[in-house]
Nucleic acid binder design. Structure first.
Length: 295
DNA sequence: TTCCAGGTAGCCG
DNA sequence: CGGCTACATGGA
């Protein structure tokens, strides 16, 4: 699959040759928290200190408020455009009617390659929390301690605060963000990351998953589930299999694994999801959340 | 009022 | 090790 940047008009980039791409399936599936759906079905959001609007029409990705340089440097990897999800979907669907349903529902899903520091803090916030409130907490954190990075369609956008910025703050400074008991975890984690300017964290994506996992568990507020989310959503480790309440429910009720048997669930993912446990997990997550009470 | 949400830390046997 | 519970917050 080759993605070609086809056309450029002032601040717009259009990318051709992308299949398996649907903004709703990508930006509203719980892997990211800072993208907002516009009335036209496009999403506006920020990553790596840039503001962009993304839509998909007639087989083309339309990126507004960006440049060809940023498309190549930021958005191509961020949107995982060089991966053929068609191949992965076919692998996962084989002999798995549940997965087939999930993939049919979220056919345009992609795993974003997000900033690891932002993902680390975002998923610490996610623990024992619900998605709308996670989004509010993160936006509040960015508004109060991030930097102004741009204005787009009349709205102001802020960067995700740096480790150094958060490391200097007293607990009282993030009180208004309503992070609850996670506030302490976040400042502690920021201090640890800021010690070396985030270099060690950034290098983890080149390490073996096992090593990245152990390193992430060393942060306050990071357990197995959050570590797997960070590895999956920011380090390109697609075998990572985050087990949250929803996926546990799926594994129990649709894959008939004993409730709370984490080991059996991981073993199943390892054996049947062909190295793409994380991607499988994300199709399942997006699928079951709309079912609501069917399972 | 109680229950729940993309769980984890601390403690106890 | 495995099992248990408190932990802030706000919406249902």
């Amino acid at each position: 699959m080759t993605v070609i940047m086809a056309k450029i008009t002032d601040n717009k980039v259009i990318a051709n040759g992308v299949a398996d791409f649907h903004p709703d399936h990508i930006f509203d599936n719980g892997q990211c928290f800072r993208w907002v759906r516009e009335a036209d079905g496009s999403y506006t959001g920020t990553a790596f200190r840039k503001v962009v609007n993304i839509n998909y029409i007639d087989g083309q990705i339309i990126l507004e408020n960006t440049s060809p340089e940023d498309f190549e440097k930021i958005w191509r990897p961020y949107l995982d455009l060089d991966r053929d999800y068609g191949v992965i979907k076919n692998l996962l669907k084989e002999d798995d009617p549940v997965m087939e349903q999930a993939i049919t529902y979220g056919s345009g899903m992609r795993i974003l390659k997000q900033d690891c520091w932002e993902t680390l803090i975002s998923f610490i916030i996610s623990q024992n929390n619900n998605i709308p409130r996670i989004k509010k907490c993160i936006e509040s954190l960015c508004r109060s301690h991030g930097e102004l990075i741009g204005e787009y369609r009349g709205k102001i956008y802020y960067s995700f605060p740096s480790p150094e910025t958060l490391a200097e703050l007293p607990l009282s400074a993030i009180d208004p963000c309503r992070l609850g008991y996670r506030a302490g975890y976040i400042l502690e984690t920021a201090k640890k990351v800021a010690e070396d300017g985030g270099i060690r964290l950034a290098l983890m994506e080149k390490e073996e998953p096992r090593e990245a996992f152990e390193y992430l568990l060393g942060f306050s507020g990071v357990g197995p589930k959050v570590a797997n989310c960070i590895m999956l959503f920011s380090m390109g480790m697609y075998g990572s299999f985050p087990l949250d309440v929803w996926i546990k429910r799926v594994m129990n009720r649709l894959y008939h694994i004993k409730k709370d048997d984490i080991n059996a669930m991981n073993a199943y993912a390892e054996q049947y999801f062909k190295g793409f446990g994380g991607i499988a997990q994300q199709y399942l997550f997006y699928y079951v959340r709309q079912l609501d009470q069917i399972i």
